[in-house]
């Protein structure tokens, strides 16, 4: 079948069986290897992508389920050379150690901040519960989300 969908703001058409996992499509057909496969069973969140803006596990998603829809991967978050505020905050607070969970965590955090601009710690924990990190202990990740939240709100006020 011919799959038409949007990947990182670009209209994309691929010949597919429809039964492939979206993570394989992204990594192997489109070369978007920022999306990582950890467990392959929806438990670790390393494969998180945004489907119409909402975080989902791309390892539990079939290509035929994304027809006509919009996918954002970590490669689509930055604009050219300038990082998304969440990416910048992760780098600044040291929320990245081995880095394997980072693309998923950044996408989940970006989706959270789009929904709730100034989340509480409790809301952060709930929103990021589907992304495992075995290095950081999460504290610096929460600090990064708080920093990104402050920066994004300041930027928004400045633009008004």
């Amino acid at each position: 079948m011919k799959l038409k969908f949007t990947v990182n703001r670009r209209a994309t058409t691929l010949e597919v069986t429809g039964a492939e996992r979206v993570i394989d499509l992204l990594r192997e057909r489109l070369g978007l290897v920022g999306t990582k496969e950890g467990c392959g069973k929806g438990e670790c969140g390393a494969c998180t992508v945004l489907l119409d803006g909402s975080p989902v596990c791309s390892c539990l998603l079939l290509s035929s389920q994304v027809a006509g829809r919009e996918i954002t991967t970590i490669e689509g978050l930055s604009e050219g050379e300038s990082l998304h505020p969440v990416q910048a905050a992760f780098a600044e607070t040291g929320a990245v150690q081995c880095g394997f969970c980072t693309p998923g965590l950044v996408l989940s955090s970006a989706a959270l901040l789009a929904d709730i601009p100034a989340p509480s710690r409790e809301q952060m924990k709930r929103a990021l519960a589907g992304n495992l990190c075995r290095c950081t202990g999460y504290q610096k990740i929460f600090e990064a989300v708080e920093l990104a939240s402050r920066n994004m709100r300041r930027e928004k006020r400045r633009r008004r």
Binding site: K41, L60, L62, S64, Q65
Partner: peptide, 28 residues
């Protein structure tokens, strides 16, 4: 039949591609 797939695709994780059923994808 596949609805969200969050249980089904976990169960099929270790099933070889050739052994998998055909999917009736209901999203549409």
């Amino acid at each position: 039949a596949v609805a969200g797939g969050t249980d089904l695709l976990v169960r099929l994780h270790d099933v070889a591609a050739g052994e998998r059923p055909s999917f009736l994808v209901l999203d549409g």
